[in-house]
Nucleic acid binder design. Sequence first.
DNA 1: CGTGTATGTTACCGATCGGTAACGTGCGCA
DNA 2: TGCGCACGTTACCGATCGGTAACATACACG
Lengths: 209, 209
Amino acid sequence: MATRKTLATPKKTAPVLEPAELPPRARILQAAHELFYGQGIRGVGVEAVAATAGTNKMTLYRHFTSKDVLVAEYLREVATAIEASWDRIGAKHADDPRGHILAWLKDMGRQMERPESRGCPITNAAIELPEPGHPGRQVIEEHKRGMRRRFMENCRKAGLPRAEMIADQLLMLLDGAGVSLQTIGHESGPMRALARHAEWLLGVDGDKK
Amino acid sequence: MATRKTLATPKKTAPVLEPAELPPRARILQAAHELFYGQGIRGVGVEAVAATAGTNKMTLYRHFTSKDVLVAEYLREVATAIEASWDRIGAKHADDPRGHILAWLKDMGRQMERPESRGCPITNAAIELPEPGHPGRQVIEEHKRGMRRRFMENCRKAGLPRAEMIADQLLMLLDGAGVSLQTIGHESGPMRALARHAEWLLGVDGDKK
DNA sequence: CGTGTATGTTACCGATCGGTAACGTGCGCA
DNA sequence: TGCGCACGTTACCGATCGGTAACATACACG
C-alpha cells in the first residue's frame, strides 16, 4: 500500500514551494503520474494517489473536481512536456527538419529504453479509457493530432513526397514501439529498430516509392 | 446495461448446443470477448458478463475459478483464433513466405478497418494488465513471442537478411496500427499505410540496407 | 493581535467490486 | 420412476470504489 502518513517533522519554514516540498496540487499531479503510469489509471484509486502525494483525499478533491478531471489534467501535463521536448530539440535543429524528427525520436527512444518504461502514457490512457465522453479523451485526441501535424510539417519542410503518409507511419512506428515494450519486453529488438526504421522512412537512402 | 433476463421461450428441444443456444460456458466466453474488448477488461464486472451471456454470476464461477482466469481464457481463445488464421492463410501460400505475411497482414488490416475495432485485444490487455503475476500475462507474452517467430521464420524462408529485425518492425507496425485507431481514429491514414509499409520491409523493391 | 484561507483528520455515504452459501428447478439417463 | 447433475435464483459477504460533511489546525497577512 505504501502510505507514508504525515511525513515526520515537515520542517517547512518558508511559505510554499521552497525546500523540496511542492504545494499539494503539484505533489498530487506528481503522484498521479507515478501511479497511473505504473499501474494503470483504472488500477489506482484516488486514496492511493493522495497518500502517495503525502496528503489526503479531501485536499485532492479541493483541487480536482473528480478523478476523471485529475486524469485529464495528468494527461495534459504529459502532453505539454512532450510539446516542450519538440521545441527544445527543434531549437537545436533549425532548418534541418529531418534531423529534428530523428533527434526527437532518438530522445523518445532513450526514455523508452529504461526498464520501468511502459511506453507512451497517453497511448496507454487511450486504450484504458475507451468511453467517448471521458474528459481525458479530448486531451488524447488533441495531442495525437498535434504529433501528426509536427511529423507532417517537418516531412513537408524536408521536401518529402507523401508527407502525410510518412507522418502516419512514424506515428504507428512510435506507438508500436511503446506497446512492444509491454508484450515482447525491453531486451529484444523493437527499440533498436526504431531509429533505423525512421531513417528509411525519411529517405536517407533516397526517396523510393 | 442491456441485461436480457431469461430469453423468452428458449425453445430448446435438444439436449445442448443445437439451435443457436450454446452451452453456458461458451456463451460466457462470447460475452466476455464482446464486453472486455469493447469497454476494457477493468471496466467490466463479472456480473455484466454473466448477464450479457444470459446467465448469472454463480454459473460463471462454476466454470471459471476467478475473473482473472476468465480473462486469461478469453485471451487464450483470441490467441488460438489468430494462430488459426495464420495456418488458414498459410495453406493458400505454400512456398511463398512473403505472400503469406502480406496476405495475413491484409486480413488483419481488413478486420481493423471496421469502425468498432479497437485494435488487437491481446495488445490492449497487455496495457490494461501490467501486474506481472496476472494469469493473462502468460498468454500475452507467449502469443507475442509466437507472432514474432512466425514473422521471423517467414522472413528467413523468403531469404531476407536481418530477418529478426524485420520481424520486430512488423510487430511494431501491426501494434502501432491497432493503437493508432484509438488515438487519431479510423478515417485518417494508418490502416491504409499498413500494407504498403510492410511491402517496403519485405523488400519488394529490393533489399536495401 | 485577530482573521481568513488552505490544509489535515476522521468518519461517513451509497454504489459496486469479486466471490460465495443455500436452495430451487428441470432435464438426461438408467 | 427416481436419481444426479447442471443450471438458475436470491441473498449475502467484506472490501474498495469515488466522493462528501464536519471539524481541527496552522500559517500568512492585515
